[in-house]
């Protein structure tokens, strides 16, 4: 459930600036419905990972990958898919860390425990 909500919110956040709007999305989602730390992290990581991968491919496929191939050379990466992976992992980490923060914040203010 948390995963799905982060996924949807991250998609929506992509239409707003700045780029770290995804962090707010993951944080808020976990704040409200995060259950465990592990679940929060992987939901945040997975949600943003998938959103960033999809959005990147959405732009890059009709481009025949010409830009991503050039930028991969700029970063000295042997293949453009590695750049896609780096993109997705960075997005995932931002999402995961934010979700954990959201979850921990929830625990900190919650009366149960």
């Amino acid at each position: 459930m948390l995963f799905l909500i982060i996924l949807i919110l991250s998609f929506a956040a992509a239409y707003f600036l700045p780029w770290w709007a995804v962090a707010i999305a993951a944080f808020l989602a976990a704040l409200f419905i995060g259950k465990t730390m592990k679940e929060s992290f992987w939901s945040g990581f997975g949600g943003v990972f998938i959103v960033w991968t999809s959005l990147a491919l959405f732009k890059s496929i009709p481009n025949d990958q010409i830009l991503v191939k050039r930028v991969a050379q700029l970063f000295h990466l042997p293949h453009w898919t590695l750049l896609l992976l780096v993109t997705a992992i960075i997005g995932g980490l931002v999402g995961g860390l934010s979700a954990i923060s959201g979850f921990l914040a929830k625990k900190a203010v919650s009366s149960k425990d």
Partner: peptide, 20 residues
């Protein structure tokens, strides 16, 4: 700035022009 640059929402991916 890697996050900004790699984010598909605002980063370099947006500069990929479509063939259509």
């Amino acid at each position: 700035p890697l996050g900004k640059f790699l984010s598909p929402a605002v980063g370099f991916w947006q500069n990929a022009e479509s063939k259509h």
